[in-house]
Design a protein around this nucleic acid. Structure first.
Lengths: 212, 212
DNA sequence: CGTAAGGTCAAGCGAACGTTTGATTTAACG
DNA sequence: CGTTAAATCAAACGTTCGCTTGACCTTACG
């Protein structure tokens, strides 16, 4: 018993080092992007030796790939969960709120959740090689959104709805990355939602009216 | 005469090296951001010696600062020019079109103009120290847009219009940076405009309706 | 021709980069 | 106790980084 426990302690120490490296890498990815992460800053922040990265992940790039994949999965799962709560009777603003809620939550929560959001946004600008393995979940998200939007706006071409969905996603990513995101982070989810949802919903709806 | 001309030739050679460095720096800033520019790649691309950067600008950072400032000035001047053509009788879509036209033109033009646009967008995410000197022009742009928007939407709070203007600017920046921008770059200004203007106008207008 | 100045160049500086190595520690097993 | 395996560590590897140096070329001026 005791022997197994102590071995597990040793093994768990290794796991904690691994998780610390992942966490530190995520933080740096969110702040400086793929090209701004340095091996030594990660290991210092995680309280680990420089060789720990090679030992646990093989290389710095491999560590970043794992951290990015975790972030993408976490964010997309949250967004899919929100979008799955919609149906064809949902209003445009409900769709917009569900679409934006993972990002708004991340802003209000800060810390690790915000780092996840910002890393996802950064990946949207500079897709690392081999990110296509997660493309399925991206498509899933967009497909759900477009399906619900089509039900509410039957007259609009589907290609345009896809474009507007991508615009909305890009807008959220921008808000998470730009300095304005730091301003929003001081607000509660409800306050962010009151300002942001009409904008996203408006982008979904589009404005094709003839006059003023 | 001849002596002056030949001296000028010598001086112009220096100026062309300087411009080449600026151009190469802009290209790298657009592609890799502030942290991704390297002295040697810039000088290789410009066909200059590594010492030329120190000679003409003092340091790599100073070169980047000049390149960024040029880009910001060029883009903001173009946007101010567009927005100044508006008045209080302009439709929402006309405002959106004017707001987005410099970005759409840059996408369609490619090359140096696109590099300017993308550098501006990157600066929006990672503002370099001392960028506040251009903050006045940013305010000017936003103030013009908000003024015209207020005239067309008298019932909306000004703070919300400022927020929506920042959202619209962020959306344009995102489209310029993300891979979707490369897709759009294959289209003409008219094709981009037909898809994009309704989205920007919709974001300006917002959607606060109660039902579906 | 001699001097001065603007501009370019190859070479090299110290620092930081990602990675590798060999020794060392810890705990389990025979 | 000796062996084995997981994990950590200091030290060094070679490369690339931004930057500086001193020589060199061209042109203008006395």
């Amino acid at each position: 018993m005791t022997r197994v426990d102590k071995r597990d302690l040793r093994r768990e120490a290794g796991r904690r080092t691994r998780d610390g490296l992942l966490s530190a890498a995520l933080e740096m990815l969110a702040r400086h992007g793929t090209e701004g992460v340095t091996l030594r800053e990660i290991t210092e922040r995680a309280g680990a030796n420089v060789a720990a990265v090679s030992y646990h992940f093989g290389s710095l790039k491999a560590l970043c790939d794992v951290a990015i994949e975790h972030a993408l999965e976490q964010y997309l799962d949250a967004q899919i969960l929100e979008l799955d709560s919609l149906d064809t009777t949902s209003t445009l603003q409900e769709v917009a709120a569900a679409f934006a809620r993972p990002m708004m939550r991340a802003l209000a929560a800060g810390g690790q959740d915000l780092a996840v959001m910002r890393t996802v946004a950064r990946v949207g600008i500079e897709p690392p090689a081999g990110w296509e393995r997660l493309a399925g979940k991206f498509d899933h998200c967009r497909r759900i959104a477009v399906r619900v939007l089509t039900a509410g706006m039957p007259g609009v071409d589907e290609q345009e709805l896809i474009f507007r969905t991508r615009c909305a996603a890009g807008l959220l990513n921008w808000l998470a990355l730009a300095p304005i995101g730091t301003e929003l982070a001081a607000l509660s989810v409800e306050q962010i939602e009151r300002q942001l949802v009409p904008v996203v919903a408006g982008a979904f709806r589009g404005d094709t009216s003839a006059g003023r």
